[in-house]
């Protein structure tokens, strides 16, 4: 009798868990266009990242720029308490400390050197809206180029400081953060989407 009661509770609890947390819900939400976020630099591709991250919060605690924030349930329960960066609010300065402190390899260790950063950091890729960009509209600006940590590798400016994104862009978001246009004329498109 006791065993039966035990089994009953167990099965009902397992079923409840199934209903509450539908698999894939997190990844479905990640496709929402309104929720544009970056994972910390050196993070694995989204699925691998989620399965590796143990939600310990050390990456945020190591971030000297305090740009790493944590999801509640906006992006689905699967990514609750996982780190993200919104570049327009505060962008990554590519110091690579989060990878050093990550115990699980969800954020890879990246040496603070150009080669290693270019090889492993794939947060996203910047995209310029030439209709909004001051330089492209004839008022020379060049702020994004000055903000970039990888000038002439990730971004280059030409005549009238008109910016162009190069293949070396890793998507840290410093250009988006610094853009003086509202709304910003340069945006980082996350790798996951």
């Amino acid at each position: 009798m006791k065993r039966r009661a035990f089994l009953k509770t167990g099965i009902s609890m397992a079923l409840l868990g199934q209903v509450l947390l539908v698999p894939e819900a997190g990844r479905a939400a990640a496709q929402k266009p309104s929720l544009r976020f970056l994972r910390p630099p050196g993070a694995l591709p989204e699925d691998d990242f989620l399965s590796r991250c143990i939600h310990c919060g050390q990456c945020g605690e190591a971030c000297p720029n305090r740009c790493i924030q944590y999801f509640a349930d906006e992006n689905g329960l699967a990514s609750a308490d996982t780190p993200y960066i919104v570049p327009r609010e505060k962008a990554c300065i590519l110091c690579m400390k989060c990878g050093d402190v990550c115990p699980t390899g969800a954020i890879q260790k990246v040496r603070y050197e150009l080669d290693d950063i270019l090889a492993k950091v794939k947060m996203g890729h910047a995209l310029i809206d030439k209709q909004l960009c001051l330089s492209w509209q004839g008022k020379s600006c060049g702020v994004c180029y000055r903000a970039c940590k990888l000038p002439d590798v990730a971004i280059r400016v030409g005549y009238m400081e008109q910016p162009e994104i190069l293949d070396g862009c890793v998507g840290c978001g410093l250009c988006e953060r610094s853009c003086i246009q509202i709304p910003q004329a340069i945006k980082v498109i996350p790798r996951s989407s």
Partner: peptide, 29 residues
């Protein structure tokens, strides 16, 4: 059973879900 369910959920969602029901992890965060 909770341990089993937590690990099973982690397996199904592909995310370490036990971290969201484990008080010491929660408190640290």
């Amino acid at each position: 059973l909770v341990l089993g369910a937590g690990l099973l959920l982690s397996m199904l969602t592909g995310s370490v879900m036990v971290a969201t029901i484990y008080p010491p992890a929660i408190i640290g965060r």
